[in-house]
Amino acid sequence: MAEITKDQVKHVAHLARLAVTEEDVEKLTDDLSAIIGYAEQLNELDTENVEPTTHVLDLKNVMRKDEPKKWITQEEALKNAPDKEAGHFRVPSILE
């Protein structure tokens, strides 16, 4: 069984774009270990020749015609933004 370490939790938190305190890391390490430990029961089942199910309906490549349609205006797209400038979403700098 996979033992989950604090370093792993920190790495996963970074991948998930979550800021975690040392206290969070401690709690999440315990919680995730317990849940993953519980999930290990799936290994009781031999699934070697079983196909995975992604969706229950047998739908494939559902497409509609690629036609331009009226949707939302630039103004509407920006109206719920926490910060904007000159018709754009504004974010803090990417480079330090």
């Binding site: 089942l45 699934t47 196909e51 995975p52």
Partner: peptide, 15 residues
């Protein structure tokens, strides 16, 4: 493979 895909396969068994 160990978790996500395994769970998708068990989903097939449940279905």
């Amino acid at each position: 493979d160990a978790y996500y895909k395994k769970a998708q396969k068990v989903r097939t068994l449940i279905k």
